[in-house]
């Protein structure tokens, strides 16, 4: 049976670094290469930030992070109890605009889509949101 690692943590910006460390440590334990870990940690960071700021509106809540390896893929599922919101439905920003014309928002989700091989969203039976990120593992350490 494949290993899974679970972190249940408060939705606070101070915990972003804790969550990145968790991803790094558990992915290393799953023998995932460092480039893949860096991409997944950044993508997770972006999703968690959006959950904290846009989902819970900085008013607290919990986030569940599940890290697992499925054959040649590192898979991370993020669950929360914020109002239902599908980030995969957001339009991509125009990244060719010069800085002075760029909107301040939208870059996080765009980075997630660029960095991951697959991003899927669903509403769990008990409500809230579940976003699953998948990244093909380049090579074993």
């Amino acid at each position: 049976m494949d290993s899974e690692f679970l972190l249940h943590i408060a939705a606070e910006l101070n915990n972003l670094a804790v969550i990145r460390r968790f991803i790094q440590e558990k992915a290393e334990a799953l023998q995932v290469d460092s480039d893949t870990i860096s991409d997944v940690a950044l993508a997770v960071d972006e999703v968690v930030n959006n959950i904290i700021v846009h989902g819970y509106h900085n008013q607290g809540g919990m986030i569940e992070v599940v890290v697992m390896r499925r054959q040649d893929r590192l898979v991370v599922s993020l669950r929360d109890q914020a109002p239902v919101f599908d980030p995969t439905a957001l339009p991509a920003p125009d990244i060719n605009l010069p800085l002075e014309k760029r909107p301040l928002g939208g870059m996080g989700v765009y980075l997630v889509m660029e960095l991951m091989d697959k991003v899927s969203y669903r509403v769990p039976d008990h409500g809230g949101n579940e976003l699953t990120l998948e990244k093909r593992i380049a090579s074993k350490n």
């Binding site: 972003l16 990145r20 950044l42 960071d45 972006e46 930030n49 010069p98 800085l99 002075e100 760029r102 301040l104 928002g105 870059m107 996080g108 980075l111």
Partner: peptide, 23 residues
């Protein structure tokens, strides 16, 4: 490490200080 939150500050810097400010 830098996430999009840091990148947004770069955009903010250009928009606050003007197009003529090189970064």
């Amino acid at each position: 490490y830098i996430s999009s939150a840091g990148l947004r500050v770069l955009v903010f810097a250009r928009q606050k200080m003007g197009k003529g400010i090189d970064i």
